[in-house]
């Protein structure tokens, strides 16, 4: 459905915006390396089924997400390392890993490796933006491209919510995936504050600056 496709393309767009920002400005300043590593972990643990992915659509997106994330990490850790300031990127990711690990181990749909890792990736994704938002809060402002990146990334999961509602009514089984939906809503709530400032400032041509 349209929400799902818009969501996936928003996700893809966010990655292109981030790559464009890093290469255009020759700098990864303002980008949280910790969040990027968490996203890498999200993709690896969620796409363990990559070799068995039957849909070409999903297969292509999975490969694109994994490879582009690897490239972003390479750019941040090697090519543009001097522009990456670890002193601003101080969020304690062990809390996020503990949160996702605990929920994945306590409430997976099944106790199989794939299911536990899948649940872990869903919960981890829901909070993986926190180091980035924390860094934004410390610097108090962001370049326009960084703000566009975060907005597109947040929109992706927000668009999955109407997708789930649409699927609930349009598919005869009326399935609700409690893990994905709960985590998706949590993820979108975490962005809400950012969305508000993005909407009131950046979309009106102003700089992204915290009040």
């Amino acid at each position: 459905n349209i929400f799902r496709v818009l969501g996936d393309f928003s996700h893809l767009a966010s990655i292109f915006i981030l790559l464009h920002k890093i290469q255009q400005l020759k700098s990864c300043s303002g980008i949280s390396f910790k969040s990027q590593v968490l996203y890498m972990l999200v993709y690896i643990t969620r796409y363990l089924d990559l070799p068995w992915t039957s849909s070409p659509y999903n297969f292509i997106f999975k490969v694109l997400f994994i490879s582009s994330e690897l490239y972003i990490i390479y750019l941040m850790a090697r090519a543009y390392k001097p522009t990456n300031d670890p002193n601003l990127d101080t969020f304690h990711v062990e809390f996020l890993l503990g949160f996702a690990g605990l929920l994945a181990l306590l409430f997976p749909y099944k106790y199989t490796i794939l299911e536990v890792f899948w649940a872990f990736s869903i919960w981890l994704e829901s909070v993986a933006i926190l180091p980035q938002l924390f860094m934004l809060q410390r610097t108090g402002e962001a370049e326009a491209m960084t703000a566009h990146y975060i907005a597109a990334l947040g929109m992706y999961r927000a668009l999955y919510i109407p997708n789930w509602i649409y699927r609930y009514f349009s598919e005869p089984t009326h399935k609700v995936d409690t893990i994905a939906v709960t985590a998706g809503i949590l993820q979108t709530i975490l962005y809400s504050d950012f969305f508000w400032i993005y909407y009131t400032k950046v979309m009106r041509g102003e700089k992204f600056k915290l009040p």
């Binding site: 999975k62 099944k110 699927r167 089984t173 399935k175 995936d177």
Partner: peptide, 10 residues
């Protein structure tokens, strides 16, 4: 099977 529906998502 709750999970199958969403396993076809990204």
């Amino acid at each position: 099977e709750a999970t199958e529906a969403v396993k076809d998502e990204l």
